[in-house]
Design a protein around this nucleic acid. Sequence first.
DNA 1: GTATATGCAAACCGTTTGCATGGCT
DNA 2: AGCCATGCAAACGGTTTGCATATAC
Lengths: 144, 144
Amino acid sequence: MTDPIQTTEAWQARGTAWLERGGLRPTRQRLALASLLVGDGMDRHVTAEGLFAWAASAGEKVSLATVYNTLRAFCDAGLMHEIVVDGSRSYFDTRLDDHAHFYWEESHRLSDAPSEGVVISQLPALPEGMEVARVDVVIRLRRA
Amino acid sequence: MTDPIQTTEAWQARGTAWLERGGLRPTRQRLALASLLVGDGMDRHVTAEGLFAWAASAGEKVSLATVYNTLRAFCDAGLMHEIVVDGSRSYFDTRLDDHAHFYWEESHRLSDAPSEGVVISQLPALPEGMEVARVDVVIRLRRA
DNA sequence: GTATATGCAAACCGTTTGCATGGCT
DNA sequence: AGCCATGCAAACGGTTTGCATATAC
């Protein structure tokens, strides 16, 4: 669980380092969002609206358009990945390696599947001249 | 390849049988779309706009709203599956069994991956009280 | 000082819906 | 006759964009 001793400054330090890795200027808004996303070092799956609401409830003043623009900037900088599981909204993931996801259909939540669990032991022959950009595995869950 | 001897009547017969399987009334528009989708017995991946354009170029008069409604009806009837790979549009697949897809990022096309190719040899432990609704595997391709 | 980020509101675009008309059984 | 499907246009919702202002370097 999260260490309760962690300070806001510690989160911001991580946020700043993270932005630096992406070559992005540490503006107030980016730093606020980055701190929320990676401040505690855990992997996150957020939607734009969700992050906007989270920032607002944390007292950060960031416009919704900036949240969208910033998430896109984070993706372009290679700091996050966009995940599409639901046509009506986009999810953004702070974890960069290929890994499978659980998608909770009734609550519209996305989470990591235990990484040891999914084993793709073989990929199909790829079409001529093509390479794999990414392999997305989404395990859609419903109440049993 | 498609057998050039096949007649429109043969497509319609398949379309009618297909609609029947889904318990859907064989209206002119549904029959037209069904014939395009399953008339030749091949698996198809279409977008609503794409199917609308295809129908129009085949001389079928169907409104875009009806294409959307009809594709949804086909999905609800269990005749097709909706596949989400691109936040900006939905794809609809006539093939019903779990199988992996190739997504051609630059052309925004979706196709089946050779079924023998992908082997998921193990699934992760599922959360308590949950079951798998579906497992989506999308292999995103880019030019090498 | 210059390039870039932000905020707002308006535009955008794929999709859905309300309602009147028309067709299937 | 009654129910359901269709078509149109308007509504919808998430996302993007144009432009004026503010901030980082």
